[in-house]
Amino acid sequence: MFEAVLFYIFATVLVVSAVAIITVRNPVHAVLCMVLCFFTTAGLWLLLRAEFLAIALVLVYVGAVMVLFLFVVMMLDVNVEQLRAGIWKNLPLALVVGGIMIFEMVALLARQVFGGLAPREAGPGYSNTKELGMLLYTDYAYPLEVAAVILLVAIIAAIALTLRRRKDTRRPAPAEQIRARREERVRLVAMPAEKDE
């Protein structure tokens, strides 16, 4: 009963904030609505006894990813008029994509793949985190490592793509400076002194 009330509160906030993301005019407000969206989703997951996933969602998405989103959106000079201009041109494509997504969701949920979505009742000593860790590092060790490598490649690629040196600076290159030898730079020339006539 109590959980049902909580569920409907969270669900209402989630749906309202999700709608607000695409309806509010100010992009910063939209990002903040998205933060609220993630946060209430985490609350819903907690109700499903998935505490590790819920906290990870807050930690990763709310705490890191959305901060960077906000960071970028605040710096952007968004012209709302320009964004709204193309709505009729892009509408057919958006409708197709949205239709496909709705179809997929319905197809998935209608078949009860999640076993009715009831949380598994667990004993008092049950730790969601430990269970997940056990599975990830035994049965799914190789997929996990492959995912880790892909992420690492993405990190390095992101740095490599954005790392640019200015070409017009006169920054000295220490390696080249150290490699230089006296013989290459200095030539001692013995010249006879000029004599006064």
């Binding site: 910063v28 903040l32 906290i55 930690l59 705490g63 890191a64 605040m74």
Partner: peptide
């Protein structure tokens, strides 16, 4: 007394930055 206490703390301390950003903006 929750099992994921340390994670909870990390998640919450990472939320603190929003106050600063929003206030600044």
């Amino acid at each position: 007394n929750i099992n994921a206490g340390l994670l909870y703390l990390m998640a919450l301390t990472s939320m603190g930055v929003y106050g600063v950003i929003i206030a600044g903006w």
